[in-house]
Simulated assay, not measured.
Amino acid sequence: MNTGSSEPGEVVMAVVNEADVNDAQTEQGLGSRAPEFVKARRLLHISWQVGVFVIGLAVVVAGIIMLPLPGPGWVVIFGGMAIWATEFVWAQLVLRWTKRKVTEAAQRALDPKVRRRNIILTSIGLVIVGVLVGIYLWKFGIVMPWKIENQ
Rank of each mutant, 00 (worst) to 15 (best):
T122H: 09
V127I: 14
V54W: 00
G134Y: 14
P112V: 12
Q28N: 07
T86V: 14
G51E: 00
E27M: 06
V133K: 09
V16Y: 06
P68H: 05
V89E: 12
I128K: 12
L121N: 09
L95F: 08
L69V: 07
Y136A: 15
A62E: 01
I148L: 15
M1T: 08
G4W: 08
L93D: 11
E10L: 10
I142T: 10
P68Q: 03
L69D: 06
I77R: 00
R100E: 14
A106T: 05
Y136L: 15
M144F: 09
V94K: 03
V75F: 08
E87H: 01
V75E: 05
Q49R: 13
A19E: 09
R100M: 14
A40L: 12
G80I: 00
G71A: 03
R117L: 15
V60K: 00
E104I: 13
S32W: 04
S5T: 04
I83S: 00
L93H: 02
V50Q: 00
F37L: 06
M66A: 11
E87K: 01
N2L: 03
P35C: 10
Q92A: 09
N150E: 15
V50I: 11
G134H: 15
M81R: 00
V94M: 14
M144I: 09
L132G: 06
I64V: 08
S123W: 07
V127Q: 04
A82Y: 00
A40K: 06
S5I: 02
V11R: 07
L126V: 15
V94S: 10
I120D: 10
Q49I: 00
V102D: 09
N17S: 12
K39A: 05
A62Q: 03
I77A: 03
P68A: 01
I124S: 12
L137K: 04
G130E: 13
I77H: 01
P35H: 09
V89N: 02
M1F: 09
G80P: 01
R108Q: 12
V21F: 12
V133Q: 13
Q151A: 13
E149K: 14
Q25E: 09
A82T: 07
R117P: 06
H45I: 02
V102P: 11
Q49F: 00
N22M: 08
L121K: 14
T103Y: 02
L43I: 02
K39R: 14
G73H: 14
W90L: 09
